[in-house]
Amino acid sequence: MEKNESQYSGGRRYKNKDITVYWKPSACIHASYCYRELLEVFDPSKRPWVDMEGSSTERIIEVVNLCPTEALAWKWIDETKNESVGSDQLNHIKFRRPELMNTEENDSNNEPVSVKIMPDGPIVLKGSFTISYNGNKKEVRDSMVSICRCGVSDHMPFCDGQHRKAGFIG
């Protein structure tokens, strides 16, 4: 996954150094303002379809504000600036998707990762974290990974269910 794209329960987020753009696919009515005005940023033929480095922050805000639905919304990364945003900024999340105003706190990146020690079973990690193993380094986002605790897995370091057969207690 591209580093400037992330998923949350209400859709996707794209960031540059100044702003976060929120994309809620289910709300899109394909009015097409975004890509007709700014294909350098909003290109439906690309994956991810939003490239936050494709234009200036000012221009991205301008075009997000053209979206007639709540499919596209934006906010400043600097939270103090969000408070003073005026109603001329039509698609600021304050007006379009107020439920997102305090979501940075609920951002999976800030939520503690859950580490569960399963009885006689593996370690189950859930959330967003970096994992390194066998010389690989991977970014896990909002997902689960199961690590072997019994020492007999054939897919180390991951659990393959063999702890049962092995009669692992612990």
């Binding site: 800030n110 859950s114 580490v115 020690i117």
Partner: peptide, 15 residues
């Protein structure tokens, strides 16, 4: 071992 650092919550269901 498995080394974990940072903001995480560990739940030992057995104990």
């Amino acid at each position: 071992p498995l080394k974990i650092t940072g903001n995480f919550l560990i739940k030992d269901l057995q104990r």
